[in-house]
Design a protein around this nucleic acid. Structure first.
Lengths: 102, 102
DNA sequence: ACGGCATATAACCGTCAAGGCATACGGCCG
DNA sequence: CGGCCGTATGCCTTGACGGTTATATGCCGT
């Protein structure tokens, strides 16, 4: 499952939104998203396999943290689309300028 | 279905990637993605309901084009994550600077 | 070494999405 | 007005996903 598909799930978005602030253990994430522990573990597995997070074992806990790579790729994919609104803004500005002239 | 979920589908990504270059009719998209016409129409419906595209009726054809809004929202959601790698780059630079000093 | 804690996996179920085929809608032209 | 072309929708099947409960794994402290 690629990064976009992984992020399509609201719960997983919840998780990465939490991890963006600070790295967390599984139990902390369980508390944060208010769902059963196995469910969270499964989502974490998906996020791991998508390369969005990595886990570091510390004692019996696993500390999850975000991995920038896929987010960069997503940003790169999105980049050409940015032209859409920047271009539109430029058009709008030209339009307003023309109006001022008249 | 929100924009991210809509874009999670490879075929739909294919479609928007085509539409990014230029607006298209349904038959053109069918040819582009190599799938049955009903399948493409269904994907277009999903994209429409997610606000990612709009259709303009021209004779018997419907011309589809991208709509910037959801892409901007996606970009906005992604924005805070950009800090991840920009910050990391800054760290790296500081690290290199320190190395140069010594 | 054993019991317990934190996490992962297994098995199962309900739901839903995606694809195909057949068909309905709607505008154009003869 | 009837038929055709382009597109949308219905129906059906199949496969994948998300959630829960029960159980396995792995590490720690005693």
């Amino acid at each position: 499952m690629d990064a976009l598909a992984a992020l399509a799930e609201p719960t997983r978005r919840r998780i990465v939104d939490v991890l963006r602030v600070r790295e967390c253990t599984v139990s902390e994430l369980v508390a944060a998203v208010g769902m059963s522990q196995p469910a969270v573990s499964k989502h974490l597995r998906v996020l791991r396999e998508a390369g969005l997070v990595t886990a570091q074992t510390r004692a019996q806990q696993r500390v999850y943290r975000l991995e920038p790579g896929p987010f960069r790729e997503l940003d790169a994919w999105l980049a050409p689309y940015r032209r859409m609104w920047t271009h539109h803004l430029a058009e709008l500005e030209r339009h307003l300028d023309r109006k001022e002239e008249s």
